[in-house]
Design a binder for these strands. Structure first.
Lengths: 237, 237
DNA sequence: TGTGGCGAAATTGCATGCAATCCTTTATAC
DNA sequence: GTATAAAGGATTGCATGCAATTTCGCCACA
């Protein structure tokens, strides 16, 4: 076996690439995702693209209409509300669990992530957006429950997608300040405050998102995908 | 379009068939699921089987090891505990929501399901087991949140699978009495009692499950799958 | 008798091909 | 000029084929 034996297989890499592209708003809700165009870009056959699309569809990031192809999901306002409401309740569980597991290493990881967020804040809008989502996922990892993690990931991704539909472009969708405060409360072991802050944070995000309608019927054009595809073709992560 | 235009496609039917077979303990944890044997049984090519297996793997009912094929998932005790713990917390949310939506129609549905459970109680063990799981899923449906429903489904199925590994065979895994009480509390609109009953119910199920080890290395033999396959081949639901 | 390795059979990973379906455009009738 | 219909092109649904990987049986050898 080679040194850097590719841990995952191509389907995983393609799914991840597409997921990132969606979260970084390179692929916008409603964009078509034709199998052969993608296959050509990624240098694989339709088979693998199909698998990836199905996986993303299971996560709710892609809509898969029979005989009509795939497109980036375009959640309705109702779905979006449902999503954010559940998110608040689920991440409440996360906070409770993280508090129980709290230790210096965990704190380090959180601080490290926050540092990344701060670094990207003025450097790259798309990456900053993705990092905001991943803060919540990091928390879920630290909660120590694989199943809970999966759900937070999925909800987080879908909320990220929703924000790209409904949030106004230049709001920092997930206030870094708010992440800061949550970490501080966790560091102090103050469960009540941490939960309250998280609830408040998520409500704020949802509010910023769900009352500004950004209509605009986009369609094709996946040229912007090229950097993501290249990484996969070159075997990168 | 034909009268009974097949609402779903063959992949869905196959996934459902396999899921039922797992929940009814026809397919036991650890059993191998080779693509061509299944394809032959179901009268389709490996392609569709593969898709179905991947879907079930995403749900956690099937384990998919690269180059080594699929098998019915065999959750560790640790995973099982994680699952049941989260289940308790998630279904707590379900109860809260169902209470808010409570109305006579909902009550009817619950009563109808309970009637089915009672009918199957002494008639068919496998079906009785499946119905017990589906009681919880019906509740989640009535909660009105599609996302929450998906998670309850998944957790419920996985818990059902877990029970077939760890629970002693002849316990009624989900006491019908307990379902009865929960419905009554819901009917009265007594949220606290309903939540408490559900917590107690799920804890009881978990306890019955997680302390009896039913070792036994099963492997192949999917002949028992035949009835499930037949339904799919004939285009039934 | 137990162990290591070699080769064949079984099984998956992926690409490709053909048929079915849907969408678009063009042509024709009113 | 609008509307309807038919043909052509594009795209998915599914099956099949070949290469790669794993598994298992077999034999040599300690």
């Amino acid at each position: 076996m080679k040194a850097a034996d590719k841990a995952k297989h191509r389907t995983d890499m393609i799914s991840s690439a597409l997921r990132s592209a969606i979260l970084e708003r390179v692929l916008m809700p409603g964009m078509k995702l034709p199998e052969d165009s993608l296959g050509e870009r990624f240098g694989v056959s339709r088979t693998l693209i199909r698998q990836s699309l199905e996986r993303l569809a299971a996560e709710g990031l892609v809509e898969l209409r029979r005989n009509k192809g795939a497109m980036v999901a375009k959640p309705s306002l109702e779905e979006a509300r449902d999503l954010f409401e559940l998110r608040t309740q689920i991440e409440d569980l996360v906070i409770s669990r993280v508090i129980k597991n709290m230790n210096p290493e965990i704190l380090d990881e959180l601080e490290a992530h926050l540092a990344k967020e701060i670094a990207a804040e003025h450097a790259s809008e798309p990456i900053s957006i993705r990092l905001a989502t991943e803060f919540h996922i990091l928390l879920a990892k630290l909660a120590g429950s694989p199943v809970l993690l999966r759900y937070v990931e999925e909800i987080g991704y879908r909320c990220g997608l929703t924000l790209s539909l409904y949030a106004r472009p230049h709001s920092t969708d997930c206030g870094i300040q708010e992440h800061r405060q949550i970490i501080d409360a966790l560091a102090k072991g103050d469960e009540e405050t941490a939960r309250e802050l998280m609830r408040h944070h998520l409500t704020a995000v949802a509010d910023r998102a769900l009352f500004t309608t950004v209509e605009g019927g986009p369609l094709l054009y996946l040229d912007a995908l090229e950097p993501y595809a290249k990484k996969v073709r070159d075997g990168g992560a």
